[in-house]
Amino acid sequence: MPANLASIRERARVLLQGICHVCPVCDGRRCPTGVPGMGGIGTGAAFRNNIAALAAYQVNLRVLHDRKDQNLGLRLFGQKLAFPILGAAVAGARVNFQGRLAEAELARAFVQGAAEAGSLACTGDGPVPELIDAGLQAIAGAGGRGIPVIKPREDTEIINLIRRAEAAGAPAVAIDVDAAGLVNMTRAGQLVEPKTVAQIAGLARGTSLPLILKGIMTVADARAAVDGGAAAIVVSNHGGRALDHTPGTAAVLPAIAAAVGEKLIVLADGGVRSGVDVLKMLALGARAVLVGRPLAIAALGGGPAGVKLQLEALADDLAVAMRLTGCGDLGDIGPQVLCGQYLDFVRSKLSTLAK
Rank of each mutant, 00 (worst) to 15 (best):
G189L: 09
P129A: 13
P304Q: 02
V25F: 06
I175R: 00
V63M: 10
V22Y: 07
D155H: 01
N4I: 10
Q336Y: 12
V252E: 08
A3L: 15
R241S: 01
E193I: 00
P210C: 10
V183A: 10
A82R: 11
E154V: 05
L314V: 11
L282F: 06
C122E: 13
L81M: 11
L267E: 01
R205I: 08
G124P: 09
R145P: 01
A231D: 12
G44C: 02
G215H: 05
T249P: 09
A255K: 02
L61F: 15
N237T: 05
M1V: 09
Q190E: 03
Y342P: 01
I265R: 04
V289S: 06
D329N: 15
L338K: 02
K195L: 15
A45R: 00
E312V: 14
I85E: 05
N60K: 14
A88V: 10
G301W: 00
R9D: 14
G215K: 00
L131D: 06
L15C: 02
D227L: 11
G239R: 03
A91I: 00
A46K: 01
P210N: 05
F345K: 02
Q112V: 12
Q310F: 12
I256C: 10
G92K: 03
D316V: 06
I8K: 09
I212D: 03
V266Q: 07
H238I: 05
L161C: 11
K80D: 15
R62W: 09
G18Y: 08
A88D: 11
L318V: 14
K195W: 04
D329I: 07
D125E: 08
V35D: 00
G99Y: 11
G34K: 01
A259G: 09
L314T: 04
R48Q: 13
V149K: 04
Q199K: 10
E262K: 12
A242H: 01
A89L: 08
Q199H: 04
R29Q: 12
F77L: 14
E105I: 03
L5S: 08
I216V: 15
L243S: 04
F83Q: 04
L290D: 02
E105M: 06
A53Y: 05
V346F: 11
P294L: 11
S236I: 00
V234P: 03
P84N: 02
D155P: 00
I233F: 03
G126E: 06
K214V: 04
H245N: 02
C23Q: 06
E262A: 11
D178A: 14
I8V: 15
L311H: 11
